[in-house]
């Protein structure tokens, strides 16, 4: 991964990549993330739309061809998206390990 791609993912991108482990259309992502986080993360449709086009451009997700219902475009994570996502999980794990080391066992 190039150095400029090693930084933290935004929360929106993290949850979009997580949600797209199954094929979903835009509204499905919004609903899924909202349910999963019990309403804490509400992706704005403008923010989501921008993030989806950036992620497609990067090749981290792909739009699925579905001739039967072309109006509702579905997306899914790609292999390179998965790689980025796994690297992010490692980074997050490191954060929590450090936090429990210094700030106490609260995170264990």
């Amino acid at each position: 991964m190039p150095p400029d791609e090693q930084g933290a993912l935004t929360e929106a991108v993290f949850y979009i990549l997580l949600a797209l482990h199954e094929p979903l259309h835009g509204y499905g992502i919004m609903q899924g993330v909202q349910e999963l986080t019990k309403g804490r993360v509400n992706l704005g449709p403008g923010t989501l739309y921008g993030a989806l086009s950036s992620l497609v451009e990067k090749g981290w997700i792909t739009a699925l061809d579905d001739a039967s219902n072309s109006r509702r475009k579905e997306y899914q994570i790609t292999a390179s998206g998965e790689q980025v996502f796994q690297a992010e999980l490692q980074r997050l794990e490191e954060l929590l390990t450090h936090a429990s080391l210094i700030a106490g066992g609260k995170w264990k």
């Binding site: 929106a12 509400n42 992706l43 704005g44 449709p45 923010t47 921008g50």
Partner: peptide, 8 residues
């Protein structure tokens, strides 16, 4: 809300 983060 259309936007949910500062960047957008």
């Amino acid at each position: 809300d259309l936007y949910s983060d500062n960047a957008s």
